[in-house]
Each structure stands twice: as C-alpha cells, then as structure tokens.
Design a protein around this nucleic acid. Structure first.
Lengths: 188, 188
DNA sequence: ATAAAGGTACACCGATCGGTTTATCTTGTC
DNA sequence: GACAAGATAAACCGATCGGTGTACCTTTAT
C-alpha cells in the first residue's frame, strides 16, 4: 500500500485538469499520462469517466469548504466579523494563480441535464456553502439568518462571475462593502 | 437569395444547440443535421467551428441586450424605475422553458484560455450590459452611476448563478429587493 | 515457495471529432 | 440556352474519444 493511493493520485490530477481545462475538453488519456498511471488502473478504480468527474467534484467540495471555513475562522474571531471575512477569503481565491472560476458553476455549464448527478452535486455544494454562512448568521444573532445567508451567498456568486468572466479585480471588495449594508440591516 | 440566408439558419440552430448542450458537447455534424444544410455549406460560411462559436456569441449578445433593453423600457417609464425593472426582466428569463444560465458564463467555463476570443467577447458582453445600466443610472441622476451600475450588475450575476446552479426560484426577486437598498442609497 | 492482487505497457475497439474532397444538382442572370 | 454561384449528399481524412483485452511484472500475505 503506497503512501498516497493510486486512487487519490488520479483524483488529484483529474481535479487539476478538469478545473483548468474543462470536463469535456479533458480526455482520460491526458489524465492517466499526467497522473502517471495506466488506463487499466483508472478503470479499475472508476467505472467510467463520468464517475471520475463525480469523484473529483466531491473532492473539490470537500477541499473548498474546508479551506473556506478554516480561513474564515483564521481571519476573524466573532461570528459577525466572520460573515465579512468570507469575502476576504474569496477575494484571496480570485487572486490565486490558477483561478478558473467556480468549478461547480463550470460543471453546471457543461452538464446541461438538470438531473445529471454533477448538477445535483453542484446544487448541493452551493447549498452547503450557504448553510455554513447561515450558521455564522445564527451564531451572530441575526434577525433572519436564513435570508441574510441567501443574500450574502448571492453576493458571493455575483463576485465570482464578475471576477472570472468580467475580469473585475474589485469584485470581492465591492461584494464585501455591499454585504456590510445587509449585515447592519440584519442587526437593526 | 432565400428569405433567410443559410448563414442565419446555421447561426440560429448553432445558437440553440450550443446554449442547450454546451460548446464542446455539440459537434458540427449535429448542427448541420438540425439546420438542414450540408457540411460544405457550413464551412463555406465559417472557416472553422471556432469561428461559428464566435458568430453565435455575437448573435446572442445582440439578441440578449436588445431584449433586455426593450423589455426594461416596456415595463417601466422612468430611468429609476427601469433600474429595478431590469430584475423583472431577468426574472422572466429564468422562467423561460429552455433557460440554461448565461451563455457567456457558460462560454467562460468551457474556454479556459483568458486570451481566447470567446472569453474576450464574453467579458465585452458583460461590460455592455453594465454600460446600459450605467446609462440608466446617469439618466436617473444617481450620485455615483458607475458604482451603482457595478453593484446592480453584481446582483444580476449572483441571481443568474443562484437561479441556474442553485435552482433558487426566488433569486431574481431577492436580487431586486437587494437592489432597492443600493438604489435608495444612490439618491441620498 | 507460491499464489493472488494490483500494477504496467500497449495494442485494439467502434464511434465521433473537426475538416476536406468529389461529383452532382438547382437556381438565378445575362 | 449557357454559365457561374451556391447548394446538395456522401465518401473520406487523420486524430481523438471513452473503454476493453492481453500479456507481463511487482508486491505482499500465506
């Protein structure tokens, strides 16, 4: 049993390639070459490319939300401050070298069938991020934590699109200042 | 010369297919079959599939913004009311049968190279929509029309993602009520 | 020592990809 | 009636797609 399993190697490399170059544009031959495994090994761990795509999206969800929570809690100590710190975390994400937008928005763009497992997982990811924010809003004692979390979530999505498609460097900062308005609203 | 040129037939059908099923997932064979033209004819009008993709995006930008402006101006008569009516127009768009998100966000998801003509055109489209809103803000006499337009634009992008990826039916309505806050702010 | 598990390399499969070629047919215009 | 323009269907191209089969090689547990 190797230190990192073949399965993890494949997922890690597929994640990078799918995120950077898209799902349909990335062939399995490219994945096995860059992961340094044989095709047989890939199909030994995953029934099909579709299943591999799903596995990478699950991994991405895990990594993304863990990082979001860790960084948010590192940057601020009170729940209310953390509701704003979220925007600093996504702002730092936008500045990352390989930033290619939100992988789940990208997945929704490529998999047009609403019933596709990838689409269901993407919607689930968005729900989980929103859930985290709602948790912070509850801890902060917001009047309507559910509504506040949905408002802040909408601002985050907007910032992602403005930053990625519109190449707007100020998107995260703008979303943050917009969030302040709803934050002060939510605490009278 | 036919009533509708072959070129327009191809663009119309390609637009539908690219929007519904994605760019990489739609082959030229499918396009010519559904457009009812020969492959020779397609390549007589377009040098490559890439060029056809660009032509469909240009068409989409034209159709989308024309519809946005027409409907916005139909729904409200004063510039300030129109700044809000924009959200009703996008809300109606979300309800359309074939709604598949924003074609330019989808294009940005599939074409990862920032220098790709499709990416440049997508950024341009977003800029032009924002420009229209800024024009309304100027007419309405907003204090800072540029900032207001960027705020409202961010809300629109957020609503699109929440509606498409998150399947949030209330996204447009929420974005509209959020917009009201910044509108009242912009007029002291 | 050996057998099972899991790895590798590589040939191979039919289907589809974007794109070209050829040969034929229709359609105005002069 | 002749001719050029532009259309058609269909064969064809090499490359790549997702996925399988075969034969060999390591590792590890019994």
């Amino acid at each position: 049993m190797p230190a990192i399993s073949k399965r993890e190697q494949i997922i890690t490399e597929a994640l990078r390639l799918f995120y950077q170059n898209g799902f349909n544009a990335t062939g399995v031959d490219r994945i096995i070459t860059e992961a340094g495994v044989s095709k047989k090994t890939l199909y030994n761990h995953f029934r099909s490319k579709d299943e591999l795509v799903l596995a990478t999206l699950r991994k991405r969800d895990e990594l993304f939300r863990n990082n979001l929570m860790r960084e948010t809690e590192r940057l601020a100590s009170t729940p209310r401050e953390r509701l704003l710190a979220v925007f600093d975390v996504v702002g730092a994400w936008f500045q990352e070298k390989g930033f290619s937008g939100c992988m789940f928005i990208n997945a929704a763009a490529e998999f047009s069938d609403t019933a596709d497992p990838c689409r269901i997982l993407s919607a689930e990811h968005k729900r989980l991020v929103c859930d985290y924010i709602r948790g912070l809003a509850e801890q902060a004692g917001a009047k309507d934590p559910d509504e506040l979390s949905k408002q802040l979530n909408l601002l985050i999505e907007g910032a992602i699109v403005c930053a990625y498609v519109g190449a707007d460097e100020a998107a995260a900062e703008r979303a943050k200042s917009m969030a302040m308005v709803f934050l002060s609203q939510a605490f009278c």
